[in-house]
Computed example of a mutant assay.
Amino acid sequence: MQQPQREIRAVHTASTVTVYQAYAPEIGGPAARAGRFPAAWKRDRMTWIKPSFLWMMYRCGWATKEGQETVLAVEIDREGFEWALRNACLSSYQPGVHPDRATWQRELRRSPTRVQWDPERDLHLQPLPYRSLQLGLAGEAARRYADEWTVAIRDVTPLAHEIHALVRDDDLDSARGLLPREEPYPAAEGLLSSLQP
């Protein structure tokens, strides 16, 4: 069955959604141990969250890139996740969605959340023909993410290394078996309508 071009695929429960981020160990370690982001986590900066594990692996190079050696699985409240989507705008101007560039720029200034759709990745981190959500959180959204929406934080760096080792050994079936089970997210009707170029 063909994948929709743009769809949120994530590990989710009735009340939570799991997203991924990668940090230097001095941020990632304390966050995983405490189950919440430490005071050193900058709440006034934009932070990008990704429901796709493999897109995160592409971004952090299987937890090898400098400053991204610790991969966190952050379980957040579904209500918070959907608030972020409802208050989002696309991170780039799209003629089919926005009446003009000035309107998009006004939206961008007002919105605490940005949506970007990037090519999903396979186990070799090559692009696939469909896209995955990236959500940029700034201002109120970043603060709420860190201090209200976060339910649990786990360090999944060992899992990233284990899957990467299997991929290097060309044992793709075993690697695939360890991937988090990401399923289409049941977004309420209309939630993504203004976020689909």
Rank of each mutant, 00 (worst) to 15 (best):
C89I: 09
E75C: 04
P38H: 04
E107Y: 15
V71N: 02
T18C: 09
L159T: 05
T150N: 06
S111D: 00
H98Y: 09
L179S: 08
R33F: 06
E66A: 07
L123H: 08
Q105E: 14
L133P: 10
P99Q: 08
A165Y: 11
V97W: 03
R110M: 09
Q68T: 07
Y185N: 02
L191I: 04
H124W: 12
R181D: 15
P158K: 09
M57Q: 14
S194I: 00
I76V: 13
L192S: 10
L166Q: 05
A14I: 02
A40Y: 09
G29I: 13
V17D: 12
A175L: 01
N87T: 15
S15Y: 12
V97E: 04
P197M: 02
F37G: 00
V11C: 11
R59Q: 03
P25L: 07
D169A: 15
R9G: 01
W83P: 00
Q5Y: 08
A175D: 08
P197G: 05
V74I: 15
D155K: 10
L133I: 04
Y145L: 01
D173W: 01
A10I: 11
D44T: 15
Q126S: 15
P158A: 10
P95M: 03
G190W: 15
D169F: 12
Y185T: 03
Q5G: 00
H164R: 10
L90R: 09
E79P: 01
Y130G: 00
P25I: 04
A152N: 11
V151G: 02
L133E: 03
Q94K: 09
D44M: 12
A40Q: 10
W104G: 00
P112F: 13
